[in-house]
Computed example of a mutant assay.
Amino acid sequence: MTQLDVLYRYGVPPTEASMLAMARVREVYGVRALTFDEKNKTIRVEYDATRLNEAMIHQLLRRAGLDILERVTLFTVPPPPESQPTAAPTTK
């Protein structure tokens, strides 16, 4: 099993009907967890990548009625360290 997370930002808060539909999304084999953050208007989905992919998760949420605006990057790759010129050794 390969566990992955994807984070989406949504616009309009989900309705009661959407929340009920998303409860059924939790029952899809491979979806491990759905976590809402109402303050930041995001939903985080933990899923098994051997069963589902990110496009399938996106489609499940859209079909449930969630107004997805964008996918949020969970982490960024730090830039490579800048090469700094080394100082010449001093002689005494």
Rank of each mutant, 00 (worst) to 15 (best):
I68Q: 10
P85I: 03
V72D: 12
V45M: 01
T42N: 02
L34V: 04
K41D: 01
E27D: 11
T15G: 06
V31Q: 10
L61A: 11
V25T: 08
I57H: 14
G11H: 09
A88D: 08
Q84I: 02
I57D: 06
E82R: 02
L52C: 00
R9V: 11
E46V: 02
P85E: 03
P78C: 01
V25Q: 02
G65M: 09
A23K: 07
L4F: 12
R62H: 14
T73M: 15
Y29Q: 14
A23D: 14
L34D: 05
P14M: 04
N53T: 11
M1C: 11
L4W: 12
K39I: 09
E82G: 00
I43K: 05
P80Y: 10
K41A: 00
M1H: 12
P79L: 13
D67E: 13
L61C: 09
P14C: 02
T35C: 10
L61F: 10
L60G: 11
L7T: 14
L4K: 07
F36Y: 15
V25C: 01
V6D: 02
N40D: 11
M22Q: 05
P80M: 04
E16M: 06
L66K: 04
P78N: 06
T91R: 05
D67T: 05
R51F: 05
E54C: 03
V31E: 13
M56V: 08
T73F: 15
T73P: 15
D48P: 05
P13D: 10
T50G: 02
